[in-house]
Nucleic acid binder design. Structure first.
Lengths: 196, 196, 196, 196
DNA sequence: AAGTAATCGAGACGGTACGTCCGGTCTTCCT
DNA sequence: AGGAAGACCGGACGTACCGTCTCGATTACTT
């Protein structure tokens, strides 16, 4: 897929331009949301021609999500200390904290945009959701092996129960992403899945 | 605010026009999503002038949500049979069923749009979320009074646990809104909150 | 065609805008030729939106020719003094003089553009050529009636002989539109068509 | 200018490429006029890089005219049989015939383009007009020596009278380039310049 | 054989203009 | 006052060419 083809013919893509576009897009995104990250505006801000952006990103959403990941390329480590409640709380609290900042609004808009842009949905699922869910699933599996939680669980459903409330509040805004949220959610889920 | 002014001066608002607009908007919404329900397009389809729409609806989102409720004005009854698990399952299964059809896509787009349109968020919360949550809260309260579930619960958190997975799947599309979903979710939540 | 329809519904067309566009287009046309009279540039200069221009003029050429006639709306009178040689010379000399100024370059470009824009050709023929040829034909007909020139002439060919050299020099630029040109051309033609 | 430099260093220009470009340009020119003969399109069609074209031709017009001459490299012989009327008619009729075909439209567009491209005008005059006018002038001069026409004539004006009507009709399109045109024009001119 | 020099294909890039869509606002007349 | 019709500005869209640029590969002539 990305095997080093050796030097391809033609002028190579300018890394300078790639970065300028991503930075400009991230800036606009944070300043004024997705609406402000129009191709036109990003091109102007980055000092780059529109065509160049269109050559590399198929849509505003695709660019926005690249810019988002570029700006918020987080470590995304998931410690496995053996204390399931603590590990899950830590991980989810980190998500809550991130979403409380500007990144939350941007992510909410990206999810919103994905409703009318299937490609964007794909990217979101594969680059954002999937890694987090895989890490979480691993932790849960090990907890099951340790006998801490039941073994007959549908992990996908469990993870929905863990993550959904965060995204739900983010998207609907009916309640804040408060400090205790992560803890409460994890507690509620564990109450249901713990071995008795 | 809505005191009966008695017959106000001037030409009264045309009910015919109101309906034509809502029907046209709903049609476009279903055919092509929010993007297709532009004020321009709806006006053309309804045979109505743009200004008339602007007079009565502040934005595309506001119009869309009105059209949504106009088309899918559902009964939204919530039976309280005394069997908590059944009542909750019934209610949530109804939501899942509704979201599986075209209404789901539209609702997803409306939630998406609300991310950049605070007014739309308000309407969504007050006219869509709130009634459902109030009915659900009443049922839960009565179950607590009957001693079926713990009394120290934060009902808001419980309702998040009940509803969030549905919206989460709707919005992220990482997993289908399958038939057993409602039952599984309710089961999971009850496992955690039932009196032991 | 332009019967007074009575007051048509809707906001009436703004005369201010119409004039601003024509003046701006004429300015650009004279400053930098057809190339400078881009819709974009004219809109900017006139303080008018592009869409407004597109609503009223189908193409750059159509706008340019309107602007040309707006700026150079000449009297186009053709005196018939009874002295054929003088009348023709006067008329053609006026054309030569006009074409020697900036109007010449613009007209040349318009004719050029008409080669790839049939609509523009139509306008040019009906609004520019036809009136001049009709007036000239009338003068020639009266001269024939007076017995000054032969009566068996194909007037269209005669008029081609009169006008063609002017446009030929304008378009090809192989020789100047000098002062004596009109006189020489008329003399040459009359030598051939005068009654002997 | 084109002295044989002897073998210059470096890779010699590829004749294959030169021909491919000219053929491609001529094709596009005939299919869709000057507009279709964009450098971009010609390069694509010829399987040649844009830069290569830019290296050898300064502009679209220059390329177009080269392509025109390449495709329509005509013999351009001018017989001098001693019969002036016939010789002129033959020559001009050949021009009319050529212009009636596709070459006419192309030539018209080239003349049009020359209005905003001085270089193109130069090429048109030196490579197209001049040779024809020189041959015609020679014929006329010999006729004057034979005493067939007046000797005090300004040959440039006479040639304008001969050729202008053809180009005039080509450019303005107000009348067709019909069969008798050449004959009529020559007759008209000779009527005026013949010795009496 | 190594070096030098030009040609060529491929393709990235900034820029200008294109013609279109939609959002909002406005003006006018009609009901 | 409500409503239809439609003109208007502004902003963005996605596309077409322009002319320039950076590469690597090729093809000759010159030491």
């Amino acid at each position: 897929m990305d095997a080093p083809h050796g030097p391809r013919p033609g002028r190579p893509r300018s890394e300078r331009v790639r970065l300028a576009v991503l930075e400009a897009a991230a800036d606009r995104l944070i300043e004024g949301g997705l609406a402000a990250a129009s191709i036109e505006a990003v091109a102007a801000r980055a000092g780059v021609s529109k065509v160049t952006i269109y050559r590399w990103w198929p849509s505003r959403g695709a660019l926005a999500i690249d810019a988002y990941f570029h700006r918020y390329r987080q470590t995304n480590e998931f410690e496995d200390t053996g204390d399931l409640a603590r590990d899950l709380s830590t991980q989810i609290a980190a998500l809550v904290t991130a979403f409380r900042g500007r990144a939350g609004g941007v992510m909410a808009e990206l999810i919103g945009q994905a409703q009318s842009d299937p490609t964007l949905g794909d990217v979101l699922r594969s680059r954002w959701l999937a890694p987090r869910r895989q890490a979480t699933a691993a932790v849960l599996r090990r907890a099951a092996e340790r006998g801490e939680i039941r073994e007959d669980l549908d992990l996908d459903t469990v993870m929905d129960q863990l993550y959904a409330p965060i995204y739900y509040r983010l998207a609907m805004g009916h309640a804040p992403l408060d400090d205790g949220l992560a803890q409460r959610v994890v507690q509620g889920v564990l109450d249901g899945i713990r071995r008795r």
